[in-house]
Simulated scan of single mutants.
Amino acid sequence: MTKSFCLLSSICLCLFLTVACQSQNFDNELATKQKNLPVSYSSNVLNITLIQHDSCPWSYFWCVVEKGINDAAKDLKVNVKLLRPSETPYKPSEQKELIEKALKDNPDGIGVTLTDRKLFREPLTTFLEDHQDDRKSRIPVIAYNAGNSPDKDDIPYDIYIGQDEEKAGYEAGKKLVELARLKSSGKRGVCINHQEDTENLQARCRGFENALRDEGIPYFTIITKDNPKNIKEEIEKDYQTHKNTDIVLSLGQIGAAPFYEFMEDNKLESSQIFHATFDLSKTIINNIENGRTLFAIDQQPYLQGYMVVQWLALIKNHNFTPPGKVISTGPSFVDKDNLDKVKQQVGQYR
């Protein structure tokens, strides 16, 4: 009985060792084969063109977007050409000319900030219809930062990467009203649009106006030229005739900085005007800390820049299908409660 058991145990042990060795050999062989597999990326370096309505260093926000673009280009080993209108203030017609020029060059992928869908629709749609027959040779087009979706914009591009601007404006307006009413305020609201010819900023103010209309609060949109002096003058002019204004939304650092100067010049306290702004900067962070700004709406600009390059490369190299027609990067709200989580990232990734 004991001898039989020992013999059986020895046979089982040999079988186990044989299987284990074979399994190890198989794993090593598989690892070697996988290691020697050819890289699936195209051997040719991709050439991507991005056409946007603003850029660094003129806009703090766009420095963060472009860091994402540059990091993605480096990580994915692609060439990126960045085009922006040279005239100030911004003119959509000049961006349209840049789009048409880029389309004629037939790059491997195109990204565009869709600030005027009506103006840009014809050249983009014609190009897309002419270059989408063969999936392997087609040229992907992505809208980023400014846009809605291929369906809403009625342009058959691949995806929109950014935030829902009207929704963001609406949520900001609702939140401002709630905070104002806690202090028995909420008499009149103002949205500061520092770039009148961009549809994404118009959508932010439209959302803000809808939120205040729902609450029965009068509202007004200040439309200014894209320079701090003019913005401050227009804020001042409106306030002198409407001193009951106690809710203000600015649409970025360009509008927020003149607002802070206006508050200081008029010796107004944060308890007198409830302020929020889109986007982040060191100046905005400081004003959230001192209570002058209640919150900022963050749309993760670094992600917008990185992902437009990433997805153009993925679609062109692998024919990948994005997870949806919209990749949402916002909105999210930054206030005193969660400021520490993002404070160190401002200027780099936020």
Rank of each mutant, 00 (worst) to 15 (best):
N210Y: 12
L182S: 10
A72M: 00
V342M: 02
N338L: 05
T32C: 05
D151N: 12
S185Y: 06
G186R: 04
S184K: 15
N79Y: 07
P89R: 04
D246Q: 06
N244H: 09
S23K: 14
S9P: 01
K325A: 13
S10I: 12
F333P: 01
L76M: 01
D27M: 14
K67D: 03
Q52R: 10
F333W: 04
Y160H: 10
K174N: 12
G189I: 07
G186N: 05
V308Y: 03
L294A: 08
V141W: 06
T277D: 01
A180L: 06
L103E: 09
D108S: 14
D265R: 06
V177R: 04
Y144R: 01
K81V: 11
L103S: 10
G252N: 00
D153W: 03
R350A: 14
A146Q: 00
N244L: 09
P150D: 08
P92S: 07
N193P: 06
L280D: 02
G111F: 10
D226F: 13
D105M: 15
I315R: 02
K187I: 07
D337H: 08
A172H: 05
T221P: 05
F320E: 10
N286G: 03
D71C: 07
Q344F: 14
A276T: 03
K3D: 13
Y306A: 00
S281W: 03
L76T: 05
D130P: 00
N36S: 13
E264K: 08
V65F: 04
K152S: 14
G186T: 01
A211P: 01
R188Q: 11
V78G: 05
T88G: 13
I223L: 15
V141S: 03
E236H: 13
I288V: 08
E233Q: 15
P323L: 02
I285V: 15
S149H: 07
P140M: 04
F262T: 06
R181G: 09
Q52F: 06
L182Q: 14
Q240R: 15
F278P: 04
L280G: 02
K232W: 11
E87S: 15
V326D: 02
S270M: 02
V45M: 14
N287K: 13
I48F: 09
Q299F: 05
E100G: 10
T2H: 10
D71E: 11
E215V: 09
L119Q: 11
E97G: 12
M263A: 05
Q272K: 13
E209H: 12
R138P: 00
K136G: 11
Q310F: 09
M1Y: 11
D134H: 05
Q348E: 12
V248P: 01
K282R: 13
E269S: 14
Y160V: 06
Q132G: 00
F16D: 09
I11V: 12
K267L: 09
T18P: 06
L212Q: 02
V19Y: 12
T88N: 15
Q24L: 14
Y60Q: 09
V80I: 07
Q345M: 13
C56D: 05
Y170S: 10
Q240I: 14
L176A: 08
I235Y: 11
L8N: 13
L119I: 08
G252R: 03
Q52D: 03
A276I: 02
N148P: 00
D337K: 10
H194N: 11
L37G: 02
S43C: 09
G68H: 02
E97W: 01
I99S: 03
I11E: 00
G111M: 11
G216I: 08
T88I: 14
K67G: 00
K104H: 14
D279L: 08
